[in-house]
C-alpha cells in the first residue's frame, strides 16, 4: 500500500467533507463523518478520479466507503 496514496486519499477525504486531516484514519467512513452522504460521496469519487486519473467501475463506487477501501481500489487500478 503506497504511503503517498494513503496521504493523498486522506487529504481529499478531509477537504471534501471539511474535516481535519488528523481526524481522517484508515477506518474513516460515513459512520464517522456526518457530511459523508450520497451526493458528497459522488463529489468525493469525482475528486479522487481527477486526482488519480482513474475511473471507478460503477459497481465499485458504493463500496468505496472507507479510506482503506478507497486506497485498496486505487492501488488495484495501478495508479
Amino acid at each position: 500500500m503506497a504511503e503517498q496514496t494513503v496521504d493523498t486519499v486522506r487529504q481529499v477525504v478531509a477537504d471534501t467533507f471539511g474535516i481535519d486531516l488528523d481526524d481522517v484514519t484508515m477506518e474513516t467512513s460515513p459512520e464517522t463523518v456526518e457530511a459523508w452522504e450520497s451526493m458528497s460521496h459522488l463529489n468525493l469519487v469525482m475528486s479522487l478520479e481527477s486526482r488519480f486519473g482513474v475511473s471507478f467501475d460503477p459497481d465499485d463506487i458504493p463500496e468505496l466507503v472507507t479510506v482503506d477501501a478507497i486506497v485498496a481500489k486505487i492501488d488495484s487500478l495501478g495508479s
Binding site: 471539511g18 463529489n43 475528486s47
Partner: peptide
C-alpha cells in the same frame, strides 16, 4: 485546475 484541486481550494477558502 482540476476537480480535486477545487475541493482543496474550497476547503482552504472556508
Amino acid at each position: 485546475p482540476t476537480a480535486a484541486t477545487a475541493t482543496t481550494v474550497n476547503a482552504m477558502l472556508k
